[in-house]
Design a protein around this nucleic acid. Structure first.
Lengths: 251, 251
DNA sequence: CGCTATGTTGATCCATATCAATAAGTGTGG
DNA sequence: CCACACTTATTGATATGGATCAACATAGCG
């Protein structure tokens, strides 16, 4: 403990950013100061591997800016599991259980990451009852999100997953009929469990439903047609949409 | 509240069975008595739907005997998500979040189920700090199990999933080279994300690796050959194996 | 401005689903 | 306890979603 890599101790200017997460907002000031004392902030360029599955979980990570891809590998294959955007934590479960990471993480953009020593998180968990309860809420949320993702994969074809993904993104874009994909199509294809080639063709297949694609720009010309095809369900597609500092919408 | 369906209040004879779950073992005697006071036990025949996805979560369920299939549906399709065996709880996350069930549940055998009113669970969660911490451990466990299942589906072919499933079952059977499938092949195929026809052919494809199947009886003649093909990974295949009252093996 | 990574398109292959028919269990009631 | 009925499992034939391989186009980026 105490070894500083780069970036040094966490500047107090970030204290507020991290604190606004549900996970930390109800902690006692004491516990929070204690946690931050051993934490630090690092800046990463894009495409940097931060953690690798199988390693022991030394830090709880908080994405302050940028974007992080969680992915998994087996037998030479690789798949994207989730994309984490500010301001959220990741690998909380591994931290709490003091168990190896189940997923790897790499930046997909230039990112600023807060690193909180796992043993400090566990100490706060033991000492602070409200923090323990906040972790329950967070983990229940994470659990339900993975269950939804798993239903998505097992119950839908790749075309249906894409259609529903676009509708979810439209919601995140505030309902606008034009928005940009938040990352490369290559990453999207892996996230949706398909190949880049298949994704390319899937976009084509959605033209009859009024989906127009130009690079990363998506135009949903006829939301009703797309919805009729996609048949979105709150039990799969309602994901916690984030407005900085608060989760909006029950999940 | 207070409406008794059938089975009446929980007989004290079950108090110990439920208490031995990690989830409840560290509760104060007070909180535990409080929880049990409003709970009851019901016996179900096989193939009975107990809860349906989308409903609000009125009870935390505990499987005391038998087996329960968690499954999910969308647009006329259905898939098995997990099988819950004694003694375990299910739908804890929905209970805690007071959110709708994401999965349905039906008995696959004659089963005895304890029903604990969700509001009592939430009350205990608020009042009992140790219980809150036990829930964290349980949810982290659940989360990691779903992540593993999701990796299994996204990274492996159906044949590879079957091979690894058999190896996991072998572990559960204490390493014996002969054991029985714990439920119908139809259910197994859905759990593994394939059709019954495909499962039937998959078993055939494993013959070269020394897998002999006769009804539900499995004989793994050459574990080393099967392992060489299946390439099991602790980051996917180590699932919490249960010895009544305790989880054995880190997950 | 050219290199390299990303994305598209076409041809083909493979895994898995579907449809159809049969066989084998399994449970139920006479 | 057996016979029937119904469900589950197997097997074969075929269809299809999606992967792979290959070539080319395009877009970022240094």
């Amino acid at each position: 403990m105490g070894q500083r890599l780069n970036g040094g101790y966490m500047p107090r200017s970030y204290f507020g950013d991290v604190r606004q997460l549900h996970l930390f907002s109800e902690m006692t000031e004491d516990s929070y100061e204690q946690l931050m004392r051993g934490s630090y902030v690092q800046n990463f360029p894009p495409q940097i591997d931060m953690i690798h599955e199988g390693e022991s979980s030394d830090f709880l990570h908080v994405v302050l800016s940028g974007a992080v891809e969680l992915y998994a590998s087996w037998n030479g294959r690789e798949t994207s599991m989730d994309i984490v955007r500010p301001i959220s934590t990741f690998i909380l479960a591994a931290t709490i259980k003091d168990a190896p990471y189940l997923m790897s993480a790499r930046t997909i953009e230039k990112s600023r990451i807060a690193l909180i020593p796992s043993q400090d998180v566990r100490a706060a968990f033991d000492a602070d009852n409200d923090f323990a309860r906040a972790i329950v809420t967070e983990l229940a949320q994470c659990y339900r999100t993975v269950v939804k993702t798993h239903k998505d994969v097992k119950l839908r074809t790749s075309l249906e997953r894409l259609a529903n993904y676009l509708l979810r993104q439209q919601v995140r874009a505030g309902g606008a009929d034009k928005f940009d994909l938040p990352f490369e199509k290559r990453v999207l294809s892996s996230l949706l469990g398909m190949t880049p080639e298949n994704l390319s063709r899937a976009f084509k297949s959605l033209i009859p439903y009024g989906v127009v694609v130009d690079g990363r720009a998506i135009h949903i010309q006829s939301p009703s047609d797309l919805r009729e095809f996609a048949k979105p369900s709150p039990l799969i597609d309602d994901r916690g949409s984030i407005t900085v500092g608060g989760t909006v919408g029950e999940t």
